[in-house]
């Protein structure tokens, strides 16, 4: 447990900051009073029906996106693989819109459709890149191609049927302003189940990092586990997108940060991704709420801004190790 003290501390701090920060002027003592059962009905609504659900949605989505990125990166042996770059988020986003178009009054369908879209995008990447032996470049290029197609179709739907999405910009960048509790009721159990399954199966990722041939020699059914990890990553990303829209870079940044900061086994890293991803997205969402107070920025805008330096860090690390960008 000592290994995770830093991550847990940051997470707890992030939760407190998010709980105390907001439009309504409530100091920390006041907030604690409301949590302990006091306060006015309006204050109870603010804490229990707005802030806490939003915190919960941010925590779960952050954990889901980070673990999704980690599974994809280790599984494909590619440090720049992430649900955003492989088009999985875009696929999920497209199907969320289709769901809003076809089943406008069934918000529970969003999660299922989102997962279908995520899995379809992952399948497109696999089919397009399988001919080249799933090489790093072909996987990324296939993801970019599939993701662009999904993004274009999303834009077509938004242009033709603007009423399908409440806030076009917020959906494209991702955020928690429009996250409904009915969506959370479907997505959170799915994410928690997928996180538990990811933790259980992550042990074989350590061996898959040695390459397919070595892993097979050590008794890992590589094809089976590769499909399981892609399905879990899609499930996690899909469920997260159904709650928060197309938030980018979390799945890329958090796993790479964890690899740089710690050198643990895959199972430990999955736990760290859960803690760090949750804390990161919650802090990003809190920042999005506070930066232009009393207005609010989409949370995805903050993660996108932070994504650029993180990519530079990955490149710099690669350069340091190899002495060259080649």
């Amino acid at each position: 447990m000592r290994k995770y003290i830093l991550s847990v501390t940051v997470l707890v701090l992030a939760v407190f900051i998010a709980l105390f920060a907001g439009n309504t002027a409530m100091d920390s003592r006041h907030v604690m009073e409301v949590i302990c059962g006091g306060g006015s009905p309006a204050e109870r609504v603010i804490i229990f029906q707005i802030r806490i659900p939003r915190i919960l949605a941010s925590l779960v989505s952050g954990a889901a996106l980070a673990v999704s990125g980690y599974l994809l990166q280790d599984n494909l042996n590619n440090i720049i693989a992430s649900p955003g770059l492989l088009g999985i988020n875009n696929g999920a986003g497209l199907f969320v819109l289709i769901s809003a178009l076809v089943f406008p009054y069934k918000s529970g369908m969003k999660c299922l459709m989102s997962f279908t879209g995520a899995l379809l995008s992952a399948a497109i990447v696999c089919v397009l890149s399988i001919g080249t032996g799933m090489s790093k470049t072909s996987v990324i290029l296939s993801g970019v191609a599939g993701g662009s197609l999904m993004a274009s179709l999303t834009q077509v739907i938004i242009s033709l049927k603007p009423e399908t999405v409440a806030d076009k910009v917020a959906f494209s960048l991702g955020g928690f302003a429009n996250t409904g509790q009915d969506m959370m009721k479907t997505a959170i159990p799915v994410i928690i189940t997928a996180l538990i399954l990811s933790f259980i199966t992550a042990g074989s990722l350590d061996l898959m990092l040695l390459g397919d041939e070595t892993a097979t020699g050590l008794g890992v059914n590589v094809t089976f586990y590769r499909l399981i990890f892609i399905a879990l990553a899609s499930l996690l990303a899909g469920a997260a997108v159904s709650m928060c829209g197309l938030i980018g870079f979390v799945g890329l940044m958090v796993p790479n940060f964890i690899r740089m900061a710690w050198n643990g086994k895959s199972r430990e890293n999955v736990l760290r991704c859960i803690l760090t991803g949750a804390a990161f997205l919650l802090l990003a969402d809190t920042a999005a709420r506070l930066i232009v107070f009393p207005y609010e920025l989409p949370c995805g805008l903050i993660t996108n801004i932070l994504g650029t330096p993180s990519l530079i860090c990955v490149l710099a690390k690669k350069r340091k190790r190899l002495g060259t960008y080649d």
Binding site: L210, E213, T214, T216, G217, L218, G219, N263
Partner: peptide, 22 residues
Amino acid sequence: LSARKRSQRVAYLPQILKTPRI
């Protein structure tokens, strides 16, 4: 044989060896 059972009988060292950070 399952992959696990097979690997209890035969060990294999491939030609190309990866270098993960372990």
